[in-house]
Design a protein around this nucleic acid. Sequence first.
DNA 1: CTTTGTGAACTTCTTCACAGCT
DNA 2: AGCTGTGAAGAAGTTCACAAAG
Lengths: 210, 210
Amino acid sequence: MREKLGKMPLPIVERLSVYLLTLLDIKSEGRVSVSSLELAERNGFSSAQVRKDLSCFGTFGKKGTGYDIDLLIEKIRGILGLKRTWRLALIGLGNLGKALITHKGFTTRAFEFVAIFEKKPSLVGKQYKGIQIYNIENLDKIAKAKRIEIVVLTIPKEEVAGVYEKVIVAGIPAALNFTPVRLLSKGNTLVKNVNFFQNLETLTFYLSNF
Amino acid sequence: MREKLGKMPLPIVERLSVYLLTLLDIKSEGRVSVSSLELAERNGFSSAQVRKDLSCFGTFGKKGTGYDIDLLIEKIRGILGLKRTWRLALIGLGNLGKALITHKGFTTRAFEFVAIFEKKPSLVGKQYKGIQIYNIENLDKIAKAKRIEIVVLTIPKEEVAGVYEKVIVAGIPAALNFTPVRLLSKGNTLVKNVNFFQNLETLTFYLSNF
DNA sequence: CTTTGTGAACTTCTTCACAGCT
DNA sequence: AGCTGTGAAGAAGTTCACAAAG
């Protein structure tokens, strides 16, 4: 069993998230155990990969039987830090921001929006879906008061640099970046970039070259 | 120089997309050439990586000077298949679907929505932002008539399996999947999964383990 | 002097294959 | 017999380091 969780390779962590989704799915079918082979085939991995990934965190399986679904769900939720609710703030209440705020997935999972930041003066001081809208200039103060852990960036290209600087100064632990500007982790802020166009372009690359 | 574009590793293709964005950015600053080192540092890669990636597709640089920005932009656009417009269809006109349809990035890039499919009978036959809304039952017929190349899936969990089956039967070349159900490429359809929660969960994993 | 392009070295990730438990 | 956990082997991806070119 591998140590040093903080240095765990990203591919393994990403697959853990996939396993969790699959386990919840299988559980909803009323099943109680599952083999590494099934977990693998449902997701296009190899069974050895599934076993090796899980073995990084402990020995959860039973030889001859496979993995107890409830147990494994709880273990993975623990590993991924999903046994508590995470406090998010949306920065940028455009169409995408609104879609994310109203997305059911956040609430049914372990994520809760506790604040919205928006530049447009007419929105500041109001609420959207019951969440208070603040001026981005107060990010530092509000982040501390509201104990914001992750900011979700859905602002236009032009505003990204300035806003990211404020996020770093505020010392917010993490950012999920939906803008088309790629950000690098800096200071104490861990960044994850989500780029639709990059995804589309990998598709057009492979479509073009077959 | 490496051959077999269709077998090019995904990480390289993804970085190409990043280089393109960076080049457009640098170009907008009025510059005409750039070194592999700068391209690397702006994105958190190594300069050797940049050079090796680009060398898979040809020799575009000038020793001592670096890369001509305009030339490299055109080369990468060519490699990624972005010299023409791609015909997209949205399946599922919920909040996320609407946000994507109105997202400026699609039109300013090489992507165009030519159809919308929606289950809700009250919407079928109408238009949204000038794009015709169709019944999903007609996917096969409309896909052919409209020459749809990529479908963007923004439907609820429950509908994914059924809709994906129709996409495969229609032989649509690619799907960008925003649903929480992971899909595997099948038939002639290439799938790219986009999962916000997976991204959030990688953040919570690292936040939890430091 | 600067910077590319690229084999060789290295590191990381994945699969193989099998001992060992149920 | 069925399936896990894992060391060893193999594949893939990254960096090193330097000859060659402007």
